[in-house]
Design a protein around this nucleic acid. Structure first.
Length: 162
DNA sequence: GCCAACGTTGGC
DNA sequence: GCCAACGTTGGC
């Protein structure tokens, strides 16, 4: 059992988009960084906790709770010639990129990046390290608990309200 | 749009 | 295997 923080650009796939799907689940496509890929391929397990993070937007931060919902499998977008995630060196026989399915559990009150930086328990969090660009970063149990404690007040709220 | 930080590529 | 050039990320 591990915990993760996974970044998504909300104008591509937002927490609302995921909650609006029938199974509240999306393939985490588009990862093109080996370290992030290896987390999905080698370390993630079904049921791992996921902090759903919105990046490249007005208020970057954690916006929901989710979980890993599948084992890794080839990311179909690598084969889509003309798509922005196409990789000419990948073939169905020898895929280079994988994804996992991520199931949204709930939308939370946003916990902004600036608020995360203000939490002393998160001093070593990978997301907050200088120069970090990884779209998938591990979260320790202690960090997870500290963050959950800040998210809990919103958990009783209706999950599909804006 | 800027730009720091970091990853990838490719010539040698 | 080195490393300069280039590309990307992502907060601001």
């Amino acid at each position: 059992m591990h915990y993760w923080l996974m970044k998504s650009e909300p104008n591509e796939v937002s927490i609302d988009d995921v909650l609006a799907t029938p199974a509240r689940t999306v393939p985490w496509f588009g990862v093109r960084n080996y370290q992030a890929r290896n987390f999905m391929r080698d370390v993630m397990q079904v049921g791992d906790g996921v902090l759903f993070y919105h990046s490249s937007c007005a208020e970057p931060g954690i916006v929901g709770l989710a979980e890993v919902a599948s084992t890794p499998y080839p990311d179909a977008t690598q084969f889509d010639a003309g798509g922005k995630y196409f990789d000419a060196k990948a073939t169905p026989e020898q895929p280079r990129w994988v994804c996992v399915d991520v199931r949204a559990i709930s939308k939370t009150r946003p916990l902004a990046l600036s608020a995360l930086r203000a939490l002393p328990e998160l001093g070593d969090m990978a997301l907050l390290k200088r120069g970090n660009r990884l779209s998938i970063t591990p979260v320790t149990g202690r960090q997870w608990q500290a963050i959950l404690a800040r998210l809990t007040p919103a958990l009783g709220a209706p999950q599909n309200s804006p």
